[in-house]
Amino acid sequence: MDRLEAMSIFVAAAETGSFSSASRKLRTPLPTVSRKVAELEAHLNARLLVRSTRKLTLTDAGVAYLAACKQILEQVGEAESAAAGEYSTPRGELVVTAPVVFGRLHVLPVINEFLAAFPEIAVRLVLADRNLHLLDEHIDVALRIGNLPDSSMVATQVGTVSRVICASPHFLAEHGEPVTPADLARLACVNFDSLPSGPVWNFAATAAPQQAVSIRPRLSVNTAEAAIDAAIAGVGVTNVLSYQVARAVDEGKLKLLLRDYEPEPVPVSVMHAGQGRLPLKTRSFIDFALPRLRAALAGQNDKPRVKATARSKQKHATSSR
């Protein structure tokens, strides 16, 4: 029995909660997953998992063994990286994750330049509008949008983005331009379903507390791109992030509204796990990406932006786009 392979399969099964999920994650046949875990339990002469029709549950022995497996597999990974030269020469596969639109607009161009400069590194870019767990998903670097609670994650802020209100000039000529957030109640709106507040848009002003306005969705969509396209087509006013709409505004297809009532900008951060010595491929990408992302975000907001900070201990963002 290959114990390292069995440990890896056991960890995947424990973390995903089922053999079928572990099978999909590892791209390993389901019977193999079940057999390897059974062999491991027989080798240890201990039950690690309690199997039910709904999910797997760790036994007390399984909880302790899971922690030990994670530590052993991490040490083996670091030893292999060192032997392969990842700590002396930038090489190997680098996994980067980012929100879908931000990744396509700002991260992918940086990666394209990076690949040209570092021919021995291959990059896998995972675009997802949810926060992937860096350790569980084997992610080297993550781009996060939002405030980051403290944790063992290491994050470096590269800029900020704002939530903005916009509409097409044609729509505004026909229906009038809102002067205050309350004016949105009389206008057709395009709502982005991923907003935590739903059909309630939040605003702030220098001399007033935060305002919440219930809008009248003429159209609800589940992606920012669809909301922007609908707004350009004159369906209504929409609420998106500044970087998502920057090109349409520059081209005159959309006009920014209610600038004095925009909420405070939110930070954009580059994150990594920060555990142990950082492989050179990861350090090289971070050093390469930081100045380019800062430059890309520098023109995103007209309002004063939060100064980018040095490295700080932070956690996954509670919101991503």
Rank of each mutant, 00 (worst) to 15 (best):
T16S: 15
R124F: 00
R124S: 15
C189V: 14
S152G: 10
E80A: 08
T97I: 07
E5Q: 13
R130D: 11
S214R: 06
L254N: 05
R104P: 00
V270F: 11
L132P: 02
A317Q: 02
S8M: 10
L94V: 04
S152H: 13
V164K: 02
T309W: 15
V268H: 06
N147W: 11
M153C: 07
K253M: 06
V164T: 10
S88A: 14
C189H: 04
T28N: 03
C189R: 00
K315M: 07
E5M: 15
L94F: 06
L148W: 06
V95S: 03
V190Q: 02
G236V: 10
Q157K: 14
V179D: 12
M271V: 07
L58C: 09
V179Q: 12
V110S: 07
A226C: 02
T223H: 08
S319W: 06
L134F: 11
L4M: 13
G176T: 05
L297A: 02
L40M: 12
H170L: 10
L258E: 03
E74H: 09
I286R: 09
P99F: 05
P169C: 09
V110T: 09
K303F: 01
R47Q: 12
L44P: 01
G236P: 04
T160G: 08
I215G: 01
S34P: 01
D150F: 15
R27Y: 01
R294C: 11
S152W: 11
R124M: 10
P181N: 03
L195A: 09
Q275I: 13
H170Q: 12
A226K: 07
L184V: 00
V37W: 00
R294E: 15
G77A: 13
L132H: 07
S242C: 04
A142G: 12
P31N: 10
V50T: 13
L73N: 12
V200T: 12
A98I: 01
S168G: 08
A205F: 05
R321T: 08
D229L: 10
L105N: 11
G17D: 07
Q210L: 12
P169M: 06
A167W: 10
E225A: 13
S151A: 08
A295W: 00
T59G: 13
N239Y: 11
G77M: 04
E120P: 03
L30I: 13
A246L: 10
N131H: 15
S214L: 09
A68F: 03
V213E: 04
L66P: 10
S168Q: 05
S220K: 03
Q210G: 15
V154S: 08
A248L: 03
L187G: 04
V270P: 03
A82T: 01
T318R: 12
A46V: 14
R283I: 06
H106P: 08
R54W: 01
P29N: 09
D150I: 11
F171R: 03
H316Q: 09
P304R: 05
V200F: 14
E251H: 08
T16N: 14
V240L: 07
F19Q: 03
L257D: 01
A42L: 11
F285P: 00
A317G: 10
D2F: 08
L241A: 09
V240R: 01
H133G: 01
D183H: 14
Q211R: 07
L280V: 12
V235P: 01
F288H: 11
A188T: 12
C189E: 03
V268A: 04
F102E: 00
V213N: 00
W201L: 04
L256S: 03
R130V: 13
V245I: 14
L66D: 12
I165W: 15
A230M: 05
I139S: 06
S81C: 09
L293T: 04
